[in-house]
């Protein structure tokens, strides 16, 4: 092998290693939703959120299985999966987007960095563009991310029966919290 080819190979290997070292992930992130009405508050948690963050490009992805949401009441969980989310037909929800100002985050210094996130949320067979603010936190070298935003159920073709329309809010608050403790 010529020396030039060898140099190119070594450089390519070094480049791919440095890029891959910028990806952090979790498969046990937390996503909660909260529905607030005068009649009733409903909360559910999903602790099996897979998320990948590329700290160099800001690329950010989330995905979760809808039937892993846990409710306080078994009946609510049943209705969520069978009547509203239709988890058999639409088993997965996902987000694909990016942190648009990733350069504002200093990944070598502890702190809380406000960021802007934009991308496409796919839920119940409908994909819509969303934007929100979030915080990226660095603590002892560990990266975590947190965001809170709202979605309107009608935007995702989720229909609520007239009989329970006073118990379920039209707009649901979503909270996401991920500790990116694994490296790709």
């Amino acid at each position: 092998m010529q020396l030039r080819s060898l140099v190119v190979l070594v450089a390519l290997f070094g480049f791919s290693f440095s890029v891959s070292a910028q990806k952090f992930y979790t498969k046990n992130g937390l996503l909660s939703f909260f529905s607030n009405t005068a009649f009733e508050n409903i909360k559910a948690d999903n602790n099996q959120v897979t998320s990948v963050l590329n700290t160099q490009t800001g690329e950010l992805q989330f995905s979760l299985l809808n039937n892993a949401f846990h409710f306080k009441k078994a009946l609510m969980e049943e209705h969520f999966n069978e009547d509203y989310m239709e988890s058999k037909t639409y088993p997965k929800s996902s987000f694909k987007g990016s942190i648009t100002n990733i350069k504002n985050v200093n990944f070598s210094k502890d702190g809380v960095y406000p960021v802007s996130v934009t991308g496409e949320l796919s839920l119940h067979g409908v994909t819509k563009k969303i934007s929100t603010t979030a915080n990226i936190s660095l603590k002892g070298g560990k990266i975590s991310g947190a965001a809170k935003f709202s979605i309107t159920l009608a935007d995702y073709q989720i229909k609520i029966d007239d009989t329970v329309k006073d118990s379920i809010a039209k707009t649901i608050e979503i909270t996401v919290s991920c500790l990116y403790d694994q490296k790709l």
Binding site: Y25, Q48, L65, N67, A68, H70, K92
Partner: peptide
Amino acid sequence: CSGYNSGDADMGLPGDVFLIR
């Protein structure tokens, strides 16, 4: 068993099968 979440092929992350409770 909640199922298999396919991870992300583009980012080189294999999926897991999830068990809850």
